[in-house]
């Protein structure tokens, strides 16, 4: 199966105002979409500088509108917007709005994919210029672009073999791999992922160094923080928690005082988490949420000018 057959083999989907099943006319729609997209990009590039912000704000507002309306518009509690039939005009509008959420979501996912493309374009452009002008550390840029090209070619080749050539699932077994499959495995698992791990593991060294040099008990607050951290860290050590707990159990048996159970390490740590840590995090989350709401509203309504340059 080639890519074109793959696209043609798409199943019929539920139709709404927002989405039409392409059926056999899929290729035509793809061509129309590409033509419209290219035309739109061309038109956008010709928009006068002073109008660009307005275009951006209009698109932002339109993209956010279905989500806001879907949240605010009254609807039956158990409404199924795919299979139910609206009973009146109000519900009909609600259904119309809610059916828009999915295509807009799909659109944002596609835009997210395009953003990856924009990122790649920008990366290639910046580093190509650096190599061309022999700027400082241009050698690193060369390595970056070479790695990028090799990874792309090998990755797509491997994907093509697995998706379109291998019809029996033979490549799922390592013994049947071809050189390109080994190359992909080496590049992705053997190099990229291992470097990812190595970078992250460096944090351990900085944490230890910081613990030794910077975590000083210089104030009451620092002492409280250190005591709390100590209890939570000790609680992560199962051996210690278990031994401590057994000791408390024996003490309770000897003294007959169940209150001592509160001094089990895990009970105390759990109390710290649920009574101190979680409420504090919740308060922070609440503040962050309010801030995000305010910022979201500002962005949606075009009041936030930062980051939008003409």
């Amino acid at each position: 199966m080639n890519l074109m057959q793959y696209m043609l083999a798409q199943q019929a989907i539920e139709e709404t105002f927002w989405r039409k099943a392409p059926g056999q006319g899929l290729i035509l729609w793809v061509v129309i979409g590409l033509a419209l997209g290219t035309g739109l990009c061309f038109l956008l590039s010709t928009v006068p500088t002073n109008l660009r912000k307005k275009v951006i704000f209009t698109f932002t507002f339109l993209a956010g509108l279905p989500y806001v309306l879907a949240f605010l518009w009254p609807r039956p509690i158990s409404a199924d917007f795919t299979n139910d039939i609206p009973r009146n005009k109000g519900e009909e509008i609600g259904f119309f709005i809610n059916q828009a959420v999915e295509p807009v979501g799909t659109l944002t996912n596609i835009l997210g994919g395009f953003l990856l493309g924009v990122g790649i374009f920008s990366l290639v452009r910046v580093h190509s210029i650096r190599i061309k002008r022999r700027q400082e550390n241009w050698g690193y840029s060369l390595v970056l672009l070479a790695s990028f090209a090799i990874m792309t070619v090998v990755g797509f080749w491997d994907w093509r073999l697995r998706a379109f050539v291998d019809q029996t699932g033979a490549l799922n077994v390592r013994d049947n791999w071809q050189p390109v499959n080994y190359a992909q495995d080496l590049l992705f698992e053997g190099i990229y992922q291992q470097m990812d791990s190595a970078m992250f593991s460096m944090i351990a060294f900085f944490i230890l160094s910081a613990a030794y040099r910077a975590f000083r008990i210089r104030s009451v607050e620092a002492t409280v923080m250190m005591a709390s951290a100590l209890i939570l860290m000790l609680n992560l050590m199962g051996a210690l928690t278990y031994a401590w707990g057994e000791g408390i159990n024996n003490l309770v048996v000897q003294t007959g005082n169940p209150f001592l159970m509160n001094f089990k390490l895990n009970v105390f740590a759990d109390w710290l988490r649920s009574t101190m840590q979680i409420p504090a995090i919740r308060a922070i989350d609440f503040g962050v949420g309010l801030g995000a709401l305010a910022m979201g509203l500002r962005l949606w309504l075009g009041l936030e000018k930062g980051g939008v340059t003409a």
Binding site: Q10, I13, E14, R19, A70, F81, T82, Q99, V101, E102
Partner: peptide
């Protein structure tokens, strides 16, 4: 809102 459509196709 619509699981079948998000994974359609």
């Amino acid at each position: 809102s619509n699981l079948r459509s998000v994974w359609a196709n």
